[in-house]
């Protein structure tokens, strides 16, 4: 059993660089990978520029965003002791997106440093806090999901409204960009914007990993095991908001990764909510990278939205969840 798990983790680890190679090899232009790699970072040939300035940052951003979403989902599920929780469902993503939309379209430009991410995280945090307050402390799964859906719908409507009044000719189309997510045309600048916030998120969740473990037994047991402080849930929420908010600010909201990934990999870490964080980050990165490879290779008039691809993968998973529940196992 344990050996089997180790093999699976090893497979995931090995698959990531392979997928990265796949992503670097995918694109509308055929590129001589080996010579472009040999030319290095500062290569001036168009092959090298395409590889180092276009494909690599996009692939790494997919990894980063996927990791943030996977880890955020694992933390959310651990904190709420609920396998149906995910950052997007609890409004974190749409909160971040709304803040980003307000800032970008009515405020300063894209390249104004960390303010965008900071605001997005503020948005993510307030949305999650609103859901938490609305549902009440120690709320049942049903009430929490209900509150999440309500806040989420409201925030999505606000995004659409804000974009409608935005001084942009592409308002309605931009709504889709934000709500379905995209990694197209992202470069190193966005990657470096998101990176510190993901790091803060990882750090916050690293310090709360044992709280998540103890919380598997319930709030009272966790408190008796030395995790009484209200700082722990706050730190988790901050970690999720930081990682997911940073990701959403550069890539828009991408659903289902945060929900599906922790589910899939939970057996690989013997259900341990702490190790689940890291394995979910790994699997989320892999899933989003594969989804982006699909997006890149999909031929169409418009680029396929990556949120649509993850939903394609995520929705059947939901069907499967319902079917197992019908067989009377749980839920």
């Amino acid at each position: 059993m344990l050996k089997h798990n180790k093999n699976a983790v090893f497979l995931l680890l090995a698959a990531l660089p392979l997928a990265l190679l796949g992503a670097l090899g995918s694109g509308p232009v055929s590129v001589d990978l080996s010579s472009a790699l040999a030319e290095g970072w500062s290569g001036q040939s168009s092959d090298a520029v395409i590889l180092w300035q276009l494909r690599l940052p996009r692939a790494l951003l997919a990894i980063l965003v996927g990791a943030a979403l996977g880890m955020g989902g694992a933390a959310m599920q651990g904190m709420l002791r609920n396998p149906l929780a995910e950052p997007a469902l609890l409004g974190v993503s749409s909160g971040a997106a709304l803040a980003a939309v307000l800032f970008l379209y009515y405020g300063a430009a894209w390249k104004s440093g960390w303010l965008l991410q900071a605001l997005a995280i503020g948005g993510a945090f307030s949305a999650a806090a609103a859901v938490w307050l609305l549902a009440g402390r120690g709320a049942s799964a049903g009430r929490l999901v209900l509150a999440g859906v309500a806040i989420n719908a409201f925030l999505s409507a606000l995004i659409a409204l804000a974009l409608n009044y935005a001084p942009s000719m592409f308002a309605m189309q931009e709504v889709v960009f934000w709500l379905m997510g995209s990694l197209a045309n992202r470069g190193w600048d966005q990657l470096f914007l998101a990176l510190p916030f993901l790091a803060v998120g990882v750090l916050c969740l690293f310090f709360t990993r044992n709280y998540l473990r103890a919380l598997a037994l319930g709030e009272d047991s966790a408190a008796s095991l030395g995790f009484q402080s209200r700082a722990y849930p706050f730190l988790i929420l901050l970690g999720i908001a930081s990682a997911v908010g940073g990701a959403v600010a550069v890539a828009g909201t991408i659903g289902f990764v945060g929900l599906v990934v922790p589910h899939l990999v939970r057996p690989l870490v013997r259900q341990d909510p702490a190790r689940l964080l890291w394995i979910s980050a790994l699997a989320g990165a892999l899933l989003l990278l594969l989804a982006d490879i699909l997006v890149i290779n999909f031929v169409g008039a418009q680029e396929l939205r990556i949120g649509a691809v993850t939903a394609f993968i995520g929705a059947p998973f939901f069907f499967w969840l319902i079917l197992t529940a019908r067989r009377g196992q749980w839920l």
Binding site: N82, R213, G218, D220, S221, S224, L225, G226, R270, Q271
Partner: peptide, 28 residues
């Protein structure tokens, strides 16, 4: 927590941990 251990009235594990892993949580 190192001085006193507490078992609440209901302690339902949220995840299907193995029994040994659940016991290990008492060592946190």
């Amino acid at each position: 927590a190192r001085l006193g251990a507490f078992l609440p009235q209901s302690e339902t594990p949220a995840w299907s941990l193995s029994a040994a892993d659940m016991v290990a949580l008492g060592l946190l």
